[in-house]
């Protein structure tokens, strides 16, 4: 229904637009910091999470003994995961596929994109080794049929095969496929897929928390001047600039 009142309203909060930033002194801030309680066992969990996710198996095993922190994942599986990842990093893609299948055959069955990327990596390695005949055969027999299922696969396949067209691959437009970064990319896909199969997150929590700290500080910058930590590796509080 149409409204038949004359409303003399003011949007709320106009008076606050002009207020300046709050200044929080070091003393006040340190009081606030001391009120924050961080549990030791939570920090231990964070450390364990990092060791597990980054594949420090022996360190994780030892940390469990030294700190009594239980990992939320079977430590034995880290070794398998790291082995599969490492195989890709070293260019042994067939080996990696076998390791992933040993770990859990469902991973590749249910993840066509990962499987395609592994096969693509295998093709790249063949081209790198100068095995042109073998590479072509592999592309036509193994990769092309998969490309038919998925347009983006086909495009990637074409891009990869283009490597064969250049004499000097280091200067060609698709040369980046031969970079170490391509292996690392595929390797981290393998890593993430294995972790996902264990219903585990794919990234360690600590880096995200550090990013969150940078973000939270910049958010608070808009409202207050307060002692910041500008260097994460020293964790030193620095006095607010406005002081």
């Amino acid at each position: 229904m149409s409204l038949f009142w004359i409303v003399l309203g003011q949007p709320g909060g106009l008076e606050e637009m002009a207020t300046s930033k709050k200044l929080i002194t070091r003393e006040e801030w340190e009081k606030k910091l001391s009120d924050v309680k961080i549990r030791k066992e939570d920090m231990n969990k964070l450390v364990m999470d990092f060791l597990v996710m980054e594949g420090y198996v022996e360190a994780a095993e030892k940390f469990r003994v030294e700190s009594g922190t239980e990992p939320d994942i079977d430590l034995a599986t880290i070794t398998d995961r790291m082995a599969a990842k490492k195989a890709v990093q070293c260019g042994n893609v067939e080996d990696a596929i076998e390791k992933v299948n040993d770990f859990n055959p469902e991973i590749l069955d249910t993840n066509p994109q990962l499987f395609f990327h592994l096969q693509q990596q295998r093709l790249i390695e063949l081209i790198r080794d100068g095995k042109v005949e073998e590479a072509l055969e592999f592309a036509q027999e193994e990769l092309a049929p998969r490309g038919e299922e998925n347009q983006s696969f086909l495009e990637e396949l074409e891009r990869t095969v283009a490597l064969l067209a250049f004499e000097d691959v280091s200067n060609c437009p698709v040369g980046d496929l031969l970079d170490m970064s391509q292996r690392l990319k595929t390797a981290s896909e393998v890593d993430a897929a294995i972790l996902a199969s264990q219903s585990h997150e794919k990234d360690p929590k600590l880096p995200s928390l550090l990013k969150m700290l940078i973000w939270a500080q910049s958010q608070l910058d808009e409202k207050a001047a307060y002692p910041r930590i500008n260097n994460l590796s020293t964790a030193t509080l620095e006095d607010p600039r406005d002081l």
């Binding site: 709050k22 929080i24 801030w29 606030k32 910091l33 009120d35 924050v36 961080i38 549990r39 939570d42 920090m43 964070l46 450390v47 928390l209 550090l210 969150m212 700290l213 939270a216 500080q217 958010q219 608070l220 409202k223 207050a224 307060y226 930590i229 994460l232 590796s233 020293t234 964790a235 509080l237």
Partner: peptide, 30 residues
């Protein structure tokens, strides 16, 4: 260092909320 960083993170989130009329989520490591 880890504890200092986590405390700073928690304190920043709490302070930001306090200065935003108590609106929003706080950060709890736990």
């Amino acid at each position: 260092h880890l504890e200092k960083l986590l405390k700073q993170l928690t304190a920043c989130c709490l302070e930001k909320r306090a200065l935003s009329r108590d609106q929003g989520e706080a950060f709890h490591l736990h």
